[in-house]
């Protein structure tokens, strides 16, 4: 029953919109519902990227710390988003901290389980990548825009 529930939740999440039900069924076997309290860290820079988090409710800040400057938030992500993409690419290591800004409900995937299923079934793997790539491209694009520092006085 729990897995059926997750399938429904996955189907309703923007990341998996339009994904074939049989793929959702397969992926749901790697997923579970998890809660974090405001202030918790989902992971830290340098940790193994062995989980994928889909935010169902709440907000997470993605941060990098620098000596003398403390934590710098470079992006916030909220309901409907996925946190981090480092789980796709070796060496599967997080490059930043993920910090819950509010109480958080997420779907947590075992990344090794997802990678294993994608390796075993390239059609599933391609379907997963097609869902992830737009997020990746969008974040790359957004990062470029942020780097332009559009709102500085010279602009």
């Amino acid at each position: 029953m729990a897995i059926e529930g997750l399938e429904r939740i996955l189907a309703g999440h923007p990341l998996f919109a339009n994904m074939a039900p049989e793929f959702l069924d397969t992926l749901a076997g790697c997923a579970k519902n998890v809660r974090f309290a405001a202030g918790d860290y989902l992971f830290h820079e340098g940790d193994d990227a062995d989980h994928i988090y889909l935010i169902r409710e709440g907000q997470v800040s993605l941060e990098i710390s620098a000596p003398g400057r403390g934590s710098m938030v470079f992006q916030t992500v909220a309901s409907g988003s996925v946190i981090g993409l480092s789980w796709i690419v070796p060496p599967y290591r997080w490059r930043f901290d993920a910090h819950a800004r509010s109480d958080l409900r997420v779907i947590e995937f075992d990344a090794r389980c997802v990678r294993g299923k994608c390796d075993a079934d390239p059609v599933l793997g391609y379907a997963v990548l097609k869902q992830i790539m737009p997020v990746l491209v969008e974040r790359l694009h957004d990062t470029r825009v942020q780097m332009l520092d559009l709102y500085s006085a010279g602009n």
Binding site: S61, G70, F74, Q75, T76, A78, D142, D149
Partner: peptide, 16 residues
Amino acid sequence: DRADPSWHGHVGVVTA
């Protein structure tokens, strides 16, 4: 576009 953790709003581009 950028903030320290004392900021409780969004960080990122407006188009998002």
